[in-house]
Amino acid sequence: MFRVLKEVFIAIPKGMFVVFKQMFHKPVTVDYPFVKPPMAPRYRGLHFLERYDDGSERCVCCGLCAASCPADAIYMEPAETERGERYAKIYEINELRCIFCGFCEEACPEEAIFLGKEYEFASSHRDNFIYTKDDLLVKWPRTKPSEVKFLRPMRRVAWQQSEEGRPQH
């Protein structure tokens, strides 16, 4: 009998009070899509292919991103430019296969491929998820500054004999 009374008049109101307290807590919900939640700085979203400071593509189609991709989402075919340089004639990422792990970004030796903050790319057709090189390359001239801080801003590195030009170990 006392137990029932304890339940009804003490325990239950205690529980309800906890819920009541929540009314005064700041909500964590964000009014998406009108307000976008802040993303972590290392968030991995849609890919983009970067360029050098003179506008030329960085990607040399080495195949390392495709080789490291655990989902086999990247397909590429290399070719040669008129100047004898290697570039990607065909470069496609199947964003449906992609698991957004970021291995391609880690593997790339040319600082060419990065995963950005874009996550709003839903579509109603499977075919629309095959992103070609044109879809992935950043716009040139740039409309906003690059998200990436490059170690190598230019393809050609002119050696200078002074201290500043040389990498410090």
Binding site: R83, G84, E85, R86, R155, R156, W159, R166, H169
Partner: peptide
């Protein structure tokens, strides 16, 4: 290595020395 790498230059305007 702290020195510049030796380079057998074929074309001054390219980094591809083929």
């Amino acid at each position: 290595l702290q020195e510049p790498k030796h380079r057998n230059i074929v074309d001054e305007n390219s980094t591809f020395d083929d």
